[in-house]
């Protein structure tokens, strides 16, 4: 097997609690997690609130520094990178967040939002950028005329399509999605998940998808990690996790999902 695209080695994160004179032991949000992810695979991380799934994702995004352990993307330890190498990493790893309304600048047009990453990385002329934005808007199923609108003029589903477009506009190898569909109606969610899968295939992406929704995780993931209180209690191939869960907590989670036996046959 080739070198994993994302390698998480014994990563922990402790958040300090208490003030200057009150050194509480701290809260361990992520505890000794190791995961590897091969090229073109999707890892689903599932857990309830407080399980540490979002903290883990934010560490891979290099937004939070691990207290212990290492995270490697394409073989490079992300906290050792500086300058040009770091900028290259930023190009390689892109996020999609949960709440599309708060992940865009409300005063920027869609064109400005999509153009910003290209400008930061100095890619293309003005005309080339426009061309790229138009093509990409079509690819995510939107009318290119939408580029003149502001985020609040778009529906939730349209905003998540823009979020997907922004995530892939720099041609990344890794996309990290944190509950990207949990604010959407099921019919819109289905369309966005379909788009996500198509884009993943077309752009050859390796993805991590975090959700509390087990059914969504089943739909998008090749492999699954189940988290509880900062620890990965079980990981493995998605079908195996859902059809033959080994850990008691995984079983409890699956049993708690409201879904009657007669839906299983569909």
């Amino acid at each position: 097997m080739s070198e994993p695209v994302v390698r998480i080695e014994n990563v922990s994160k402790v958040f300090r609690q208490g003030g200057l004179f009150n050194r509480a032991p701290g809260f361990k949000a992520v505890s000794n997690v190791s995961l590897n992810l091969a090229k073109n695979r999707t890892l689903g991380i599932v857990g309830e609130s407080g399980s540490g799934k979002s903290t883990l994702l934010r560490m891979v995004l290099r937004l939070i520094q691990p207290s212990e352990g290492r995270i490697l993307v394409n073989g490079a330890e992300i906290w050792s990178l500086r300058g040009g190498e770091l900028k290259a990493l930023r190009r390689q790893v892109q996020p999609i967040f949960q709440n599309p309304a708060s992940s865009f600048n409300p005063r920027q047009t869609i064109r400005a939002i999509l153009s910003a990453p290209l400008e930061v990385h100095g890619i293309g002329s003005v005309a080339e950028r426009r061309e790229r934005i138009t093509t990409l808007l079509r690819r995510v199923g939107l009318d290119p005329a939408i580029e003149n609108r502001l985020p609040h003029q778009l529906s939730g589903g349209q905003k998540q399509r823009i979020a997907i477009a922004r995530a892939v506009i720099l041609g990344p190898s890794v996309v990290l999605a944190d509950e990207p569909t949990s604010a959407l109606d099921v019919s819109v969610q289905a369309q966005v998940l379909k788009l996500f899968a198509d884009i993943k295939y077309d752009f050859g992406l390796t993805t991590i998808f975090v959700s509390h929704n087990l059914a969504v995780i089943r739909e998008v993931s090749d492999e699954v990690a189940v988290m509880r209180r900062g620890e990965v209690v079980e990981q493995g191939e998605a079908d195996r996790i859902f059809e033959d869960p080994q850990h008691d907590y995984t079983r409890e989670l699956l049993a708690a999902v409201p879904s009657p036996a007669f839906m299983a046959r569909a």
Binding site: T42, V186, S187, Q189, A190, L193, K194, F196, A197, D198, K200, Y201, N213, L214, A215, V216, R218, E219, V220, S221, D222, A238, D239, F242, L254, V257, S259, F262, M263, A264, A266
Partner: peptide, 26 residues
């Protein structure tokens, strides 16, 4: 099991289930 309205059918279709995996993955 036998929805009559197209909309109900669409809702059932759109709802992901832990029991099966649909075409969203390729």
């Amino acid at each position: 099991e036998a929805p009559k309205a197209d909309y109900t059918r669409m809702l059932l279709e759109a709802t992901p289930s832990i029991h099966r995996r649909k075409g969203a993955k390729r």
